[in-house]
Simulated assay, not measured.
Amino acid sequence: MTIELNHTIVRSHDAAAAAEFLADILGLPVGKRWGPFLPIVLGNGAVLEFLEVGEETVQSQHYAFLVDNDEFDRGLARIEESGIDFWADPFDSRPREINTLYGGRGVYFVDPSGHKMELMTVAYGEVPQ
């Protein structure tokens, strides 16, 4: 059997706000709540399960989404239209730019709980070009 990521829990101050925020950028629906989780199912079947922790400290994580060029354009347009800050790099040194690593395009932005999100059109290899 091939090993695949099935799901991960995304700890959030407000699960509904965080799930809706990301679902809007990705153009995906938020699934039906089950137990304490609000799910977003990605195209490869992996599930992001948003868990509300209220005012508890949320450790910032990084989530990267491989998208095609059309999805990237739509996602970036939603980011820009919403006035969300974005960067070409994970260190926030190139604001309002995108990167072109490996001949693709990428952009970083932050969700309401402080997680660093990334849209990318080409999977990264060993050394960025």
Results as ranks from 00 to 15, higher is better:
V67H: 01
I9F: 14
S60F: 01
K116L: 15
G27T: 00
E97T: 00
K116R: 15
V67Q: 01
H62D: 09
E126K: 12
A46E: 03
V41W: 01
W34H: 10
L28A: 08
A88W: 09
H13I: 04
G31I: 00
E4L: 09
V122E: 11
G54P: 05
G54Q: 11
L66P: 05
I3H: 10
F65C: 03
K32P: 03
A64V: 08
P29H: 00
D92H: 14
R11V: 05
V41R: 06
T2Q: 12
G75A: 05
E118L: 07
K32R: 13
L66F: 10
P36G: 09
Y63N: 06
E20S: 09
A77V: 08
E49N: 15
R96K: 15
D24P: 01
L101R: 04
G45D: 07
V47I: 13
G104E: 05
V30M: 02
R33S: 14
F86S: 05
P112V: 08
R78G: 04
H13L: 06
A16D: 12
D111Y: 08
S113E: 03
R74N: 08
E118N: 02
T8I: 14
D111R: 09
H13M: 08
M120P: 00
R78N: 07
L66I: 13
Y102S: 06
I9P: 04
L66H: 14
E97M: 06
F91K: 14
T100Y: 10
L38P: 03
G54H: 09
M117C: 13
R94S: 10
N6Y: 11
G83S: 12
G106M: 05
H62R: 13
I98H: 00
L26H: 04
A88V: 11
G83W: 11
V107A: 08
M120N: 11
L28G: 03
D70N: 13
R94Y: 07
H7L: 05
F37M: 15
L48Y: 04
I84R: 07
L51A: 12
P128Y: 10
D70F: 09
